[in-house]
Simulated assay, not measured.
Amino acid sequence: MSSFHLQFLLSITIILLGYLLKRTHLVKEADGEAIARIVFNVTLPCVIIVTFSGVEFDLRLLWLVLIGLGFGLFNWLVAFFVFRHKAPRTKGTFMMMVPGLNIGLFAYPLVEGLWGFEGLKYFGMLDVGNAFIVFGLTFLIAAYYAGGKGTVDIRTIFTRVFRSVPLVTYLIMFILNIINLSLPEILVDTASVISSANMPLSLLLLGIYLNFSMKREHVLQLSTFLLTKYGIGITASILCYFFVPIDGLFLYTLIIGFILPTPTSVVPYAVMFKYDKKLVGTASNLTILISFVLIWITTTFIL
């Protein structure tokens, strides 16, 4: 069995373990919040530190930052057009789920298993641009259509964006890399030990959060959302495969990155601004399954 098929099977096994732990009540879904905080604030920043410590900066990596930002903005414009005639809260629910990509929690464990830290370097740069979409634009959309349930002032947005530990870590490592400064070796070694927990914890968390209950009246709305998100993503991936002249990990990052699922941060936004949390959670989980299958098929084809 090839290494990437083995990696996908291992990933599925760990996700199923997380789901079984929840179903057997050994772990509660509420426990996932604590695991998520550890992943986002501890293990993922350590992965970023280790990944970027050995990065030699070149112009192609900067392009990935701009592409991550531009792709999110394009998705937002398409979602605005598709859902323009819906009620404000329905519009806000689905518009906040289309633009962003779940790179830190979903892509990182798969990429680490397939390409190691070299692959994480490329996806990390894509996630720098994506982070401004996830923690900035998506938050703004959720607040704007919440019908007065939240605030939308610029200060609140910037405060929230720059309170994101992964984003701040990205920016610090990015700046240190450009000015050719290195972190102390003891710090990098410590981060390396902690970063090894990121992949299993992230995959367990995906399993704990799996939930697919939905109301009949939401089926059409969910179908429209999924067609919009994956219509854009699959089209962009195909265009990249045939027309992007750069081969290797840069191309693989774009092809796989464009079909990643909705970021899990939309669930806290749904809670914060009083959206339908079950609907948002179900939509997010569906994208996880769809993206998993699409990436498995894609990597089988391109590798």
Rank of each mutant, 00 (worst) to 15 (best):
M199E: 14
N211M: 11
G207E: 02
P200D: 03
H218C: 04
A236L: 15
V219Q: 05
T224D: 02
G207I: 01
H218P: 00
L206S: 00
S237D: 12
L227H: 01
V219C: 02
I234D: 10
V244C: 15
S223C: 06
V219K: 06
I208R: 01
L220Q: 04
A236R: 08
G248Y: 11
N211I: 01
L206P: 00
D247A: 11
A197M: 15
K215S: 11
V219L: 07
P200M: 06
S223G: 07
C240M: 11
F212H: 06
S213K: 12
Y209K: 02
L210E: 03
G231M: 10
V219H: 00
F243Y: 14
T224A: 07
I238N: 11
G248D: 13
D247Q: 13
E217V: 06
G231D: 10
L206F: 00
L203A: 05
T228V: 09
S195D: 14
L222M: 13
Y241D: 09
G231E: 07
Y230I: 03
F225Q: 01
M199F: 09
Y230D: 05
L222V: 05
S213Y: 07
K215D: 14
P245H: 13
S202M: 03
K229D: 04
L239K: 13
S196F: 12
G231R: 05
